[in-house]
Design a protein around this nucleic acid. Sequence first.
DNA 1: TACACCAACGTACACCGTACGCAGAAGGAG
DNA 2: CTCCTTCTGCGTACGGTGTACGTTGGTGTA
Lengths: 293, 293
Amino acid sequence: MHPYRRIVEDVRRRIESGELRPGDRVPSARAITQEWGVAIATATRAHAALREEGLTVARAGVGTVVAGPAPRKEHELTRERIVATAVEVADRLGLAELTMRRLAAELGAATMSLYRYVPSRDELIVAMIDKALGEIRLPRRHPGGWRPAIELAARQEWAVFQRHPWLGSSMSITRPQIAPNGIRLSEWVLAAFDDTELDLEERMYAQIVLFTFVRGVASALEPEAEAIRETGLTNEQWLQTQESTLTELMDTNGMSHFQQLTEDGFDFGLDLVFEFGLARMLDGLSLFVRARG
Amino acid sequence: MHPYRRIVEDVRRRIESGELRPGDRVPSARAITQEWGVAIATATRAHAALREEGLTVARAGVGTVVAGPAPRKEHELTRERIVATAVEVADRLGLAELTMRRLAAELGAATMSLYRYVPSRDELIVAMIDKALGEIRLPRRHPGGWRPAIELAARQEWAVFQRHPWLGSSMSITRPQIAPNGIRLSEWVLAAFDDTELDLEERMYAQIVLFTFVRGVASALEPEAEAIRETGLTNEQWLQTQESTLTELMDTNGMSHFQQLTEDGFDFGLDLVFEFGLARMLDGLSLFVRARG
DNA sequence: TACACCAACGTACACCGTACGCAGAAGGAG
DNA sequence: CTCCTTCTGCGTACGGTGTACGTTGGTGTA
């Protein structure tokens, strides 16, 4: 038996015993020369044999690695992990506070290491958008009729925007960042109109308008969250600090409506804005769909 | 005749001849002692007499100055001028490129000089918002019925947003920056519903929803302008560069609607989005108003 | 042994907003 | 005349940003 067979068998045993798991690095050629007391040529032959049997794959610059779906080492730097952590940081601290340095610190890595996996901060944000949109779960079949379907989509979007306050202000309509999950969502909404007479262009406009509205409401979320973080004031408290300026302004200009509004107190909530706007929007769309039908 | 009278008359003549204009600095006490060969006490008395006659005002730290609405020297540093220039720069270069240093350079002043007139960049932006909103011209009387009025307001807003692409993304609803012109606009819209049965809270929601929609569409303007500046590509050209990625994505997921849309070509424009959305919104609002009436 | 490759990283650059404090000119009081 | 206060304008410096560039130490392979 050639000496390299012994090495192969040893390694195979380690893999089968679970000592070495998919994605782990098998001893390098240098390490083999040390461990088994052989020449590097022998070690190389062992590597080749392992590779031939499909037990391992050679990854250039990284080493020979046990084949199979790698079960993600916890602290390995990975595009996936970077994006996930970035989302988490942005949710917690706001997009402005998501700096490459802070993100690296959060990951326990050096700043520049991130640039191996992400070409720039901007592209990282695109990846974050895609990940966030991926949370939207829509049934394969559209629930009865276009209106419930559209409403469902809008509510899902709104929910995601709320979970990720930074999302609304970072998405663009005119230049849709190529986020696969965004496109999937679009397709679903377009298809939701299949039971209407709307042509494709009209559907597209309906879709964009809906989305624009939801995002419009949502883009108030980030500044608000940021303001609360920074000043520690809730919205109401803040309004009170501004009250003197406001009343002075109103007094000098005779703004009766506004004045009464602040006197009566105004129960303001983005959720209510969303609900009110969505209802009007769907009503208006209904009229349009009916006119086409 | 006291010698100081001669000085007063000399100065008066200079003012009336137009040699000295409102806002210009009259000779300082020191300068007077030089020019007229008098003691400083005399010069001070001349100043006092001029001030008493209302010809001049003493501005501490600046000098004695000809009274009247100063016709703004062209290159004097002024909050007004700073804000106007800032708006102009932001229109041209985008809000991100509006740095205090660049603004100062544009004004021919040192960076820190600006902070005499503007407490911070953030507050400068608030002032810019107010100035931009000031361009909105609405008739004192609302044109027949709530719907034309609201439509007019929305169109005016849209026009301003188009002229100032940075505006949409910098305004907040939940924490309305106290911009007098913004409040004036609000008041006008609230009053526009006077011929309906909507209560104040409903009007406020209607207003916010309308505004949110317009701003939502508008917030696509800044990124687009920026993208054009940066890459020099128009929207269509850019879409073409992305086409391969896009079609690949579509092919693998069977997105028939999306696919057909890109094949047929899709005539996309923010203006059309605005028109479509506004029409639906107003229709929806109509239903609501009628239900209340 | 030489080579090409790769992850990870440290350093450095240009730029940002703005705190701080100084220089200089002015009017006014003593 | 001298001192004081007030005002504009400004220079310098600090702590932050994104990221270009080059180095280090490991790899498989010829």
